[in-house]
Write a protein that binds this DNA or RNA. Structure first.
Length: 528
RNA sequence: GCGGGCGUAGCUCAGUUGGUUAGAGCGCUGGAUUGUGGCUCCAGAGGUCGGUGGUUCAAAUCCACCCGCUCGUACCA
């Protein structure tokens, strides 16, 4: 036993770091396809590309831990040889702010820009959650007005449709952080001393889609116990405070009572979603204006901004089937200062285990007026959004919107003789196919095992194999083997001897007709 | 981070109250077949039984700790 053990060379275990993944040919192609479509929309809106590196100095990302001389553990960080901390970017927004600040004198504001790239997060990975993933961002820097935010939401809707997601299968939900801030003030959570509590409330609201109203209600109050018995402490609000928050975030409920008593609502149109949405918005804005018009509060400002955006959407024909004002949207809890928006998929996605998955958000963004100012000291308002490319790709594949016209495997030119002259002939055949635009390859394994060559062609999914041994060579012909037809014919043959003699799916053509005949066969296969 | 479940061949899994040399199917390699994918038959390779330590005459099996995967939860700038 120990003898045997000591003789064995230590084998290296082939493995990936946790949370990282290799990407298959079809994934790479699907990503390319998506990125091309997204880029086309962004270019049409007048955005230009810019790329920044994967590493930034940690202070530029703003990720030093407070009171400590080392970065937040959520980012991958290392010290350069001069001891400076650098980190892999965890999103594309902070590096853009650094780029704009550094080149503020050369860049003409407003700066409309997009970019795609890998970002890294040192977090616990899970199904569909990786520590490296791709984002595709668009930002408008130096545009203070909410018309820039409205444009972002509309561009997001256009992008969804460009990717083949039907209207009604997605929705862009829009809110404004100032409205939420106003609600907090209204329930007495204003001021520095309540910052922690406000965060707990925001996090509770963010879980609405997953936990439902009752779950959020518990998190706002005493807390919530999950199936494993783990207890999450709540925000500790009293019943009245909880009621006000719930009322504010669930617009359908909070406005329904008012709508019911309103003489203006035509309830015979109750099944007209667009009509009801517009009525609801009208009442929502009336309520908020009533409440906050007297003095300019953050809630009043937020509501006013939302109203401007709502009108822009309506004017441009982006109805509630595409973009909806929704007071429950929270998004990134720190740097957003105004409008926030989120793209959500509405159809069910089935994973590889056959389970239905609530897909939820595939992208989002908002206004971040403070990020560039950290570098320049002057106000540089900005707004942008980010698409989770990897995540969205999973959904699109399930929807059958990607990889529908799969890449056809190459034609395989088999090798019968290994002498230099013969190899030259096979290589030349391969080249002539390639020159005609046909994917083709010459067999590069051990040519002496001919059976393996066809087995290789079979597994690789080659549509056609080309065969020319000395017999064919002498007669000036080549054999073209239709792998698909051959498989069908072979199924009817019982004995191996007969099978080998039959050469299913094969036919002979003159050497000079090779390219023309293969072209014809491939076209026939595609049609059939 | 907290709680539950699970780790045996490349994959899916069996392995009795602790008891000889740890098995099967699929896959892989070679042969039957000098030049034809599939089918059939034969042979072969492939295992630190997740790791370390402990209990024992004896551990894949029992115990402790660790690692990994997984589900829920928290965090996600």
């Amino acid at each position: 036993m120990s003898d045997k053990k000591s003789k064995k060379p230590q084998k290296l275990k082939a493995r990936l770091p946790r949370g990282f993944a290799d990407r298959s040919a079809s994934d790479v192609r699907a990503t390319d396809e998506m990125v091309t479509k997204i880029r086309a929309v962004f270019e049409r809106y007048g955005f230009d590309p810019v790329e920044t590196p994967a590493f930034e100095y940690t202070d530029a990302l703003g990720k030093f831990l407070p009171d400590q001389d080392r970065p937040n553990e959520g980012v991958f960080s290392l010290q350069d040889d001069d001891e400076q901390w650098m980190s892999l970017r965890y999103d594309l927004t902070a590096p853009l702010a650094r780029h704009v600040a550094q080149n503020i004198n050369e860049i003409a504001l407003p700066y409309r820009t997009y970019r795609q790239g890998w970002v890294f997060r040192n977090e616990k990975p899970g199904p569909g959650r990786f520590r490296q993933f791709m984002q595709f961002d668009a930002d408008t820097v130096g545009a203070p007005g909410v018309q820039a935010d409205a444009e972002m939401a509309m561009m997001m809707a256009d992008t969804m449709e460009a990717l083949g997601i039907a209207r009604g299968d997605y929705v862009i939900r829009v809110n404004n952080r100032k409205v939420l801030d106003g609600v907090m003030e209204a329930i007495g959570l204003g001021g520095e001393e309540n910052a922690g509590k406000r965060l707990t409330v925001l996090r509770a609201i963010d879980k609405l889609d997953r936990l439902g109203i009752e779950g959020v209600r518990r998190l706002l109050g005493e807390g919530r116990e999950d199936e494993s018995g783990d207890f999450t402490p709540g925000a500790g609000l009293d019943e009245q405070q909880v009621g006000l928050v719930i009322q504010q975030i669930v617009m359908d409920q909070s406005t329904t009572n008012v709508m019911r008593s309103s003489m203006d609502v035509d309830w015979s149109r109750a099944d007209d979603d667009e009509y009801l949405y517009n009525e609801r918005m009208r009442i929502f804005f009336e309520l908020n204006e009533d409440k906050f018009d007297a003095e300019p509060t953050s809630a009043g400002l937020g509501a006013t901004e939302l109203k401007v955006m709502y009108r822009l959407f309506t004017e441009c024909g982006y109805g509630p089937d595409r973009i909806r004002i929704d007071p429950s949207v929270v998004r990134g809890l720190e740097y957003y200062t105004g409008p926030v928006y989120e793209a959500e998929l509405l159809f069910d996605v089935t994973n590889e285990k056959g389970e239905t998955v609530q897909f939820g958000s595939v992208g989002g963004g908002g206004r971040y007026d403070g990020l560039v100012k950290r570098f320049t000291g002057q106000d540089v308002p900005a707004t942008g959004f980010s698409i989770g490319v990897s995540r969205l790709m999973t959904a699109l594949k399930n929807l059958g919107k990607l990889g529908t016209d799969e890449m056809v495997a190459p034609v395989l030119v088999t090798v019968m003789d290994g002498d230099t002259e013969a190899l030259g002939r096979y290589q030349k055949m391969t080249q002539s196919l390639r020159e005609a635009g046909i994917r083709a390859e010459m067999y590069q394994g051990n040519w002496k095992k001919f059976g393996n060559q066809l087995r290789y062609a079979d597994r690789r999914g080659c549509p056609v194999a080309i065969i020319q041994g000395s017999d064919e060579r002498e007669r000036g012909i080549v054999q073209i083997k239709d792998m698909i037809e051959g498989r069908k014919e072979a199924a009817a043959i019982e004995s191996n001897e007969a099978y080998r003699a039959a050469r299913p799916g094969q036919f002979e053509v003159a050497e000079g007709d090779l390219v023309a005949e293969v072209t014809k066969l491939l076209a026939a296969q595609k049609a059939g």
